[in-house]
Write a protein that binds this DNA or RNA. Sequence first.
DNA 1: CTATGGCACGGATT
DNA 2: AATCCGTGCCATAG
Length: 475
Amino acid sequence: MLQGPSLRQAPSLRPLTTAHLAQTMSLLELTSVELHQKIESELARNPALELSDKKRCPTCKQLISNNRPCQRCSSPNSISPDEPIIFISPREDFYIPSSLSSDELPEDNFTPDIEDLPTYVMKQIAPDLDHEDAIIAAHLLTNLDDDGLLQTTIIEVAQFHHIPPSKVEKILSQIQRSEPLGVGSPNPKEALLVQLEVLNESMSTPPLADKAISQGLELLSKHQYPELGRMLGISTRRVQEIANFISENLNPYPARGAWGGIRQAPQKNTDVYTNPDVIIKLLTDSPNSPLVVEIVSPFAGLLQVSSIFRSSINQAPPDKADQWKSDLGRAELLVKCIQQRTNTIVRLMKRIVIQQREFIIHGDRHLKPVTRASLAFALDVHESTISRAVSSKTVQLPTGHIVPLSKFFDRSLHIRAALKQIILKETKPLSDNEIAKILKKQGYAVARRTVAKYRAMEGILPSHLRQMQSTTEVT
DNA sequence: CTATGGCACGGATT
DNA sequence: AATCCGTGCCATAG
């Protein structure tokens, strides 16, 4: 043992702190779903961990220790318009398997109540169907999951009704083309393809986007853009554009945008388009109302070290003593690190939400370019901390769109939004050079080459191909 | 000749 | 240290 100069801490504490740091870091990178999984597996393995039985306020889901309503809900006067309301939502109810959820799922008063999905869709297509078709449609619609994806197969339905699969297919494609677009698709991939196809009728879509989805969805969701680029024979940047377009305009889980639900069990979790980690809403319809920021943090406040386990640590059988001890340490560490993770995210989000209020409410054009580094400075944390916290997390905006948190750090988003407007308002197709000039007038000094890049990123065709296409409607 | 896309370089960002 | 992004230069298409 070295006699180190520092006597401030017991030697055994040393590795604990570094482990602590390391784990905090790695936890920070996890999305809420990933964290949820980790906690669950840890709960199953580690007897020192348990979930407390604290109740949560039925309206705001904050933890409450007794039967009093939580302060936040009982004193709504304390909110000032500029201060965002931030709270941490365990949301564990959404992860409960369907057997329990059907009747125990509490009202979700963060999303507007709408009629249930099957009837909503049925109303749209009913006029086009005869009686027999309607029965099939109903059959299909009752087999949707909460994401709006089909849980049965075409063959199965066809056999059930003794009709050719092609007929079922036809009806299904009608369903897929109604709102929410892509509903009834058997998988996210097909949902995306349908959406892309329909969208293509009204606006320009990036070339090869269909191939990227049909052949490279795996790579796409893993962000392996260079890889995918090679596969399709296009540049990485192109792939990036496609990916942007998809996350902007398409939704692999058709019902989720309108519905905003969080479910989804062990599927692939490295996906941008899955459950949000943060949900931002307006408290009221007024654009001046404060923002409500819900930070999804699985089991927040519920996970704790079992006090029974802790107090009986001394009575451990000799052969198990080490094991117990390490379990206890592990549990304490995990709880602490999760707290820290949550704390970091809360501070981060608070700052972002205040800074980017305009953007959140009024859209892309109002995003203030802020680098992670400057935010790190403001929050007095290391840059890498911000990077980790931002990477791979997603936010649901008041519009219902789920976007990557990194969108808040897009340096050129506001310019691209301005560009989109210019194109939208143009009467004759403007060349990149002309667009660059207009942008310059608006205060965005960008090179003509850059305009071309932005244009491509937004999936806008070059001027000579833009000619006749917007004859549909202009108001 | 003009408009655009590819490639590559250098500086900023992570 | 690795990656991203804006730009300039050049080739190609119309």
